[in-house]
């Protein structure tokens, strides 16, 4: 089964960054998917069922926390690891993250190498 990673962020630069950071995995058979807002993300999750999602919070239409909540709590989709990306630094409300069922959070700015590491860990590569 192909491993899939979904990258969700309304900032195009960030998406490109993450794509480039995870490029290596593509060679190892992982499919990289992207979405630019919460709604699209949700659709893709439903249809493509990615194993790992990098989810930005501050997005139009539907923010990251909502998406996470729907995926984890309402739809209760299994086998999906959600990493929240937040620009809030120390202000990020961890409790909210826990409440919606996120598995991990990363603060921006992050190191591309770190992202890659984590992905490998999670996917088991």
């Amino acid at each position: 089964m192909t491993e899939k990673i979904l990258i969700v962020d309304d900032e195009p630069n960030i998406v490109i960054l993450l794509e480039q950071a995870l490029e290596v995995l593509e060679d190892e058979g992982v499919e990289l998917l992207t979405a630019r807002n919460g709604q699209d993300a949700l659709e893709i999750i439903k249809t493509e069922k990615p194993n790992l999602v990098f989810l930005d919070i501050m997005m139009p239409k539907m923010n990251g926390l909502e998406v996470c909540h729907i995926v984890k709590r309402e739809l209760q989709i299994a086998n999906i690891y959600i990493i929240i990306l937040t620009a809030k630094g120390q202000e990020f409300d961890k409790q909210k993250g826990i409440d919606v069922g996120a598995d991990l959070y990363l603060t921006k700015p992050f190191r591309p190498k770190e992202v890659l590491e984590k992905s490998r860990q999670i996917l088991g590569f």
Binding site: E11, N13, I14, L17, A87, K88, T107, P109
Partner: peptide
């Protein structure tokens, strides 16, 4: 914080 960190992410990341 959001506004400052977002571009910084790109700079540092890229």
């Amino acid at each position: 914080s959001h506004e400052l960190r977002t571009p910084l992410t790109s700079v540092l990341g890229f």
